[in-house]
Design a protein around this nucleic acid. Structure first.
Lengths: 146, 146
DNA sequence: CTTGTTGCAAATATTTTGCACCCAT
DNA sequence: ATGGGTGCAAAATATTTGCAACAAG
């Protein structure tokens, strides 16, 4: 349940579409949603919000630091709530599940490498593509509805 | 200068369009080209090859292991020659220059992390986005022509 | 009120595909 | 000759934008 202030602090008016979109991400703290996922969820919930508005909101929220954007190899951009602490991703090649992790040693090594090459890191993307070791992997799960 | 065998070994006929496209990558061993970059280079060189053919060739070459595909945050896929040894990328935020590197320690840590999470890594993408430390960074260089 | 915001439709951008014709093998 | 390959145009996908109507501060 986001408050109007979450948006106003970023100079954005607290409109109904924006509040609803932000709420979707707060209700799904560890999912990674595409613009279309968000749009479908809104429509399914009976809300008449345009896809263009979803794209605009996602872009603004990312710039405001409320959301983080990721480009996995699917071709579509996915968004998730920005919870402050940085993390990287591991995507299961069998079921698309996304696991998050963060390794300080890798982070440190990255900075060292960049420094050695004459650069200062502003951001990075690390995504591991892997297969489940145990057979319990729930291949291709059902898709989001609420 | 690619030979017909490079393609035939992968079950692909050694046609003129394919040979020319492969040649472009061999002449630019450390550039990262989009489908449109390749198309433009062909047209500029007076070759009448369709954009669809470029896309088909790039996809086939990637599957054949001749090229590697990368998805940076630009939204367009870029391709480069597959020179066997794996490497990661650092993209300069000022001039789009791409520097390649490989760190065995990071690679090792990645496998450990995946193993701990119950996965076996098949692939990974690591891309650092950074700014030049020295002012010599050639901001926004001219674009490819041959 | 005033300016930012929205929905819709149309425009972009990137990549894929159907199909008749063409060319390596 | 024959089956894969090509160009073109149209389709599919993902995202952006122009604009008139609308709503938040």
């Amino acid at each position: 349940m986001p408050t109007p202030k979450d948006l106003q602090q970023s100079g954005l008016k607290a409109t109904m579409p924006r509040m609803k979109i932000l709420e979707i991400f707060e209700n799904r703290r560890d999912e990674h949603l595409t613009a279309d996922d968000v749009y479908r969820i809104l429509v399914t919930s009976g809300l008449d919000i345009g896809l263009a508005t979803v794209y605009r909101a996602l872009t603004q929220f990312e710039q405001a630091g409320l959301l983080q954007k990721q480009n996995f190899e699917s071709g579509k951009a996915v968004f998730e709530l920005n919870r402050g602490e940085h993390h990287d991703h591991l995507v299961c090649l069998q079921c698309d599940r996304v696991v998050e992790f963060c390794d300080p040693e890798i982070e440190k090594k990255q900075s060292e490498i960049a420094a050695k090459l004459g650069f200062k890191i502003q951001a990075h993307d690390l995504c591991l593509y892997a297969e489940c070791v145990d057979a319990a992997c729930p291949h291709r799960p059902s898709k989001k509805t609420l």
